[in-house]
Design a protein around this nucleic acid. Sequence first.
DNA 1: TAGATTGTTAATCGATTAACAATC
DNA 2: TAGATTGTTAATCGATTAACAATC
Lengths: 223, 223
Amino acid sequence: MSDSGRKPPEANPTATVPKVVVSRLSLYLRELQQLVRDGQETTNSTQLGELLGVTAAQVRKDLAYFGQFGYPGIGYRCQELIVEFKRILGTTQPWGVALIGIGNLGRALLRYRGFASQGFRIAAAFDVDVQVIGTTVEGIDVYAMDTLTDQVKKMEIKLAMIAVPAVAAQEVADRLVAAGIEGLLNFAPVTISLPDHVQTVGVDLAIELEQLSFAVVTHGRKT
Amino acid sequence: MSDSGRKPPEANPTATVPKVVVSRLSLYLRELQQLVRDGQETTNSTQLGELLGVTAAQVRKDLAYFGQFGYPGIGYRCQELIVEFKRILGTTQPWGVALIGIGNLGRALLRYRGFASQGFRIAAAFDVDVQVIGTTVEGIDVYAMDTLTDQVKKMEIKLAMIAVPAVAAQEVADRLVAAGIEGLLNFAPVTISLPDHVQTVGVDLAIELEQLSFAVVTHGRKT
DNA sequence: TAGATTGTTAATCGATTAACAATC
DNA sequence: TAGATTGTTAATCGATTAACAATC
């Protein structure tokens, strides 16, 4: 029942996974965690599809990129999928994350409770403001930007969130890259140029509202 | 030079625009605004493509969904495109936005400077906490949830941002819909069920970090 | 066994790219 | 005019869907 070692969770490692499939993987994970909280032990492609608004065929195709996780006639065991998806997404072990910029948004991110449960821990915060350097916010020490490289290396931090003003974002990104950071979550509303080996994800809150605006003005007339 | 009324900015209104094209439209707009700040008056599909990391052909195809905005041999006038894109996205006139939940994230959103410049203004804030009801945060009045319908109707608010705990998100959404809200930006890490005529965009910060994690662990091995 | 549901193949659909005549 | 760049068409590529044998 727990670990009968039946199916081979080995996918084609050369197959390149479409970005949109990876984003759905996170959504599946979120729904699975909700199902478990609701006491459900198994699910199936039809249910997962309904929860995400996609077809059952797509759910099965998505999962097939990563391996065989299902039981024909039964469906999927929620807890098993959660473990697999976390492994695939790389969040089995918690990541230490650096936060740059302790302004409005930075403080909100420091206080945000939703990171820890998904395997992310803000390990250190950085700012240029002498008023906040040396203080502790939500139990996290705020360091001067000068100490970035040292701290990042000492704490083996690989991910960073940029919550500085737009004009400073590129320079901060350059320093993070120089310090050896491998992935950046950028909240500044600018495109950042980075070497190929550094990954970036951008979150622009105004753009999200723009997308909503478009959806509303075009109304029912579909996307 | 300014408004010679040459080309017809009329697109096929029945053509359904792919969601991914609309998201690139926002990115084009952001780059165009940056180009104007940098003093550039015209651009072309090659430059816009480089800024976004897409091909020039794709830029031209994207724009073709909405009309003919270019000048063969010249390219595009930045300021003209900005005006057109804002019209298409529906942000020519500013939207009043309701904010629900004045916690960590809600306060950061209230203070965020990036909304106004893109045509969004937080018009009213709501919470259940009697400690904050009746106060003013960043010049915005905080109201009790009971007054939601009245305020939304009085201020003709059509968009709302949900920044409440996950467990409360669905109920808040239901009340917003009952109040006549047409679009929701949901920051709670849950899927919200809504009637078809109400548009939703979800922003889940932990999911963004998960996507980054995946990109880092799969490293260079592409997407 | 009968019923349910998977994983996978083939068919369909849609988006991206390349090429080029039309235009400034 | 010659050069540059658009808008659009056709070709390619990739993702989604439908169907079904295999499996529990």
